[in-house]
């Protein structure tokens, strides 16, 4: 790859924008088309591009396989944890205090920094999407690693 400077330069220029776009898709998913799933794939594609241009060892330094593997779990846990959290929070506007059902986002309503921090449904979706985004990113990268790095890892 060293002999293709154009590719190297262009990718170096492009990757930040890909990452930025991924973040946009991730966090604007609450308002328009998008979401963690698409964002995760876009994010992973940046890493994959990096690995293809600069070689796997370089990519391993940026995104170590061990860490990525754990990230799969972290993303899932964030999603599942949101569900569990809703079990412990009280439902808003109830006479008798009742805790929410699994993944009942209404219980996330709060009054901290209204208008800036997401609340209620929005917060729930935000967290779940974040978890999904992390997991999808990690899974995509790990699949790539698994195939591309087969000989070296094995």
């Amino acid at each position: 790859m060293i002999s293709f400077p154009i590719i190297r330069v262009v990718s170096k220029l492009l990757i930040p924008y890909i990452l930025l776009f991924a973040l946009y898709v991730q966090f604007h998913g609450d308002f328009g088309p998008g979401g963690g799933f698409q964002a995760g794939v876009i994010f992973a594609s940046a890493i994959v591009l990096y690995a293809m241009v600069f070689g796997l060892p370089a990519a391993y330094e940026v995104a170590p396989p061990k860490v990525i593997e754990k990230l799969v779990a972290v993303g899932l846990l964030l999603y599942a944890g949101t569900g569990f959290a809703s079990l412990f929070l009280p439902r808003p506007n109830q006479d008798v205090p009742v805790t929410g059902n699994f993944l009942e986002y209404e219980v996330f309503q709060h009054n901290l920094l209204p208008g800036i921090l997401p609340t209620g449904q929005h917060l729930g979706i935000f967290l779940v999407e974040l978890g999904v985004g992390i997991t999808v990113t990690a899974v995509m990268i790990i699949i790539f690693y698994a195939f591309a790095g087969r000989e070296r890892v094995a």
Partner: peptide, 10 residues
């Protein structure tokens, strides 16, 4: 169990 599976990985 769904929650425990990623915990196992961690």
């Amino acid at each position: 169990p769904l929650f425990a599976a990623p915990v196992c990985v961690l």
